[in-house]
Every structure is written in C-alpha cells, then in structure tokens.
C-alpha cells in the first residue's frame, strides 16, 4: 500500500500546471458543493421537525442538487482517464510512466482505486448524510425514491469506473471497450445532472408509484424506496467492496496466475 500511495502522490506531482490549477479548482468546487449540500440537508432536518412539508420540499430540491456532487466529483477520475486514452491512442501515459518505476502492476491498480475513492469521497459523504436524514426523520416515499435514485446512480458510476480502471485496462487490449464505457459514463452523468432529467425521474417515479398496472415501474420505484433507506448504506458498502474486488483483487489475482505466482 505504501508504494500505491507513492504512485498517487507521483501522479498528482507530475500533472501539468494548468491541469493542476483546473483540477484543484474542480476539487475545491466539489467540496464546496458537498459542504453546501450537507449544511442544507442539516437545515432541512431542523425544518422537518417544525414544518415537515417545507422540510420535505426543500429536501427534494437539495437531493436534486446532490448528483452534482457525486457526478462532478467522480467525473474528475473519468476526465483524466478519458484524456489519457484519447491522447495516447489507447495507452495511458501514466502506465507508461509507471512501467519503469520500482512498483508492481498491483501497486498501480491499488493507486488507481485509492484515487477513485478520493474522487468519490465528497459524493459518498453527501449520500450517507442524505441516507441518515431519510432514516432518522422517516422521510416520505418521494424523498426515499430520490435518495434511492442517488444511491443507484453512485453505485453504477462507481462500478463502471472500477471496471474501467481495473479489469478493462488489463484484460482487453483494444481501447474500444473503454471508450464505450467512457461515453456511457458521460451520457449518464449529463442525464442525471441535468435538471430536466431530474424532472423526468420525478415523473417516472411518480408514474411508477401511481400506476400499479405498469409492474416494472412499480417494482423499480419500490426498489428505489428500498435503496433510499437503511439498505442504501449496505448497497454503498457492497458497491465499494465489489469495486475493490473488480478493480484491485481480481486483476491482481489474474496477474499472479499469469505469472505463475500464488
């Protein structure tokens, strides 16, 4: 793990000045968003006691804002990966850089996972805080659905990046698969972050909840309600563990098998 941390430090050090300023600003904005979201949800919690209707109304608005923290935070991880692959026609310049260093491939994938955890942290905190809010204040169905949708969005993004940074980097030689993943990721981020999409999700969820004839929608909305409560914590934990397995443990196991080591 020490070498993985060194790699993470090295990757930050070697990033160019203008990239460094841009990424620094990017990170700062994400953290400001995160702090704002946490502060606002705290305010909603206090309101919830005195005026549940207003509290709920504000909470919906706040939860709509939360994908920005999750999406933008993790987009940094996506952005650097995408730029590297596009500029180096499938090769990661960081991998070229790391090839010469006294580190193993396992160290490199651990470093990438640590980087992803760092990028996901603001979103993760906001999500946990939202889930605490829904659990403690027994939020109504629509808030549970929103927070469930957030958890699902986070889980999908996290696993996609883990697949990309882990298995796809080492198993597939072609960069085509990675590019498809990146494009899906970008589209998903844009879809979730955009306000109209939020409205669509709200309509969709409301439709699912209201119309029991559309069984799939009904099941899906129930699933979101389920994820928006206590189960959200477990799913987040499972996602991080599965992500670690897909992007660290499994590739490392494959390397060891390929190299004839136990």
């Amino acid at each position: 793990m020490k070498r993985a941390k060194l790699l993470l430090k090295a990757s930050r050090t070697m990033i160019g000045d203008s990239n460094s300023i841009a990424l620094g600003l990017f990170t700062a904005i994400v953290w400001v968003f995160a702090a704002f979201a946490i502060g606002f949800i705290t305010y909603c919690m206090t309101l919830y006691k005195t005026d549940p209707k207003l509290g709920q109304h504000l909470a919906i608005g706040m939860i709509e804002f939360s994908p920005m923290v999750i999406g933008y935070g993790m987009a940094r991880s996506f952005y650097t990966g995408f730029i590297e692959v596009r500029k180096n026609s499938g090769k990661s310049s960081f991998m070229n850089f790391a090839m010469q260093l006294p580190v193993t491939k396992e160290d490199v994938i651990k470093a990438q996972f640590l980087d992803l955890l760092r990028c996901a942290l603001p979103g993760f905190l906001v999500l946990c805080y939202t889930l605490v809010f829904t659990v403690i204040y027994k939020a109504d169905k629509i808030i549970l659905m929103y927070s469930g949708a957030l958890v699902l969005f986070f889980n999908i993004l996290f696993l996609l990046i883990c697949l990309d940074k882990g298995i796809f980097t080492y198993i597939f030689i072609s960069s085509k698969v990675r590019e498809i993943i990146y494009i899906s990721f970008a589209l998903l981020s844009i879809f979730v972050i955009s306000n109209n999409a939020q409205q669509k999700i709200q309509n969709f969820v409301a439709l699912g909840a209201a119309n029991s004839n559309l069984k799939i929608l009904s099941v899906f909305s129930s699933f979101l309600v389920f994820l928006g409560g206590e189960a959200g914590f477990i799913s987040l934990l499972l996602t991080v563990l599965i992500g670690w397995y897909l992007s660290c443990h499994l590739p490392a196991k494959i390397f060891r098998l390929k190299e004839g080591r136990k």
Binding site: R3, L6, M14, G16, N19, K87, N96, F97, L101
Partner: peptide, 21 residues
C-alpha cells in the same frame, strides 16, 4: 514513446519520480 505529461515540466516529473529511488 515518451511518458511525459505534455502540459507539465521536467522539474515536476523528476519530483514525481525521485521519491521511488
């Protein structure tokens, strides 16, 4: 093929590299 980040400097690369040796 070089492993440098185009928008960075040699100084930064060296700082990143020397911690390993």
């Amino acid at each position: 093929d070089d492993y440098f980040t185009a928008n960075s400097t040699l100084d930064r690369h060296v700082k990143a590299l020397k911690i390993f040796y």
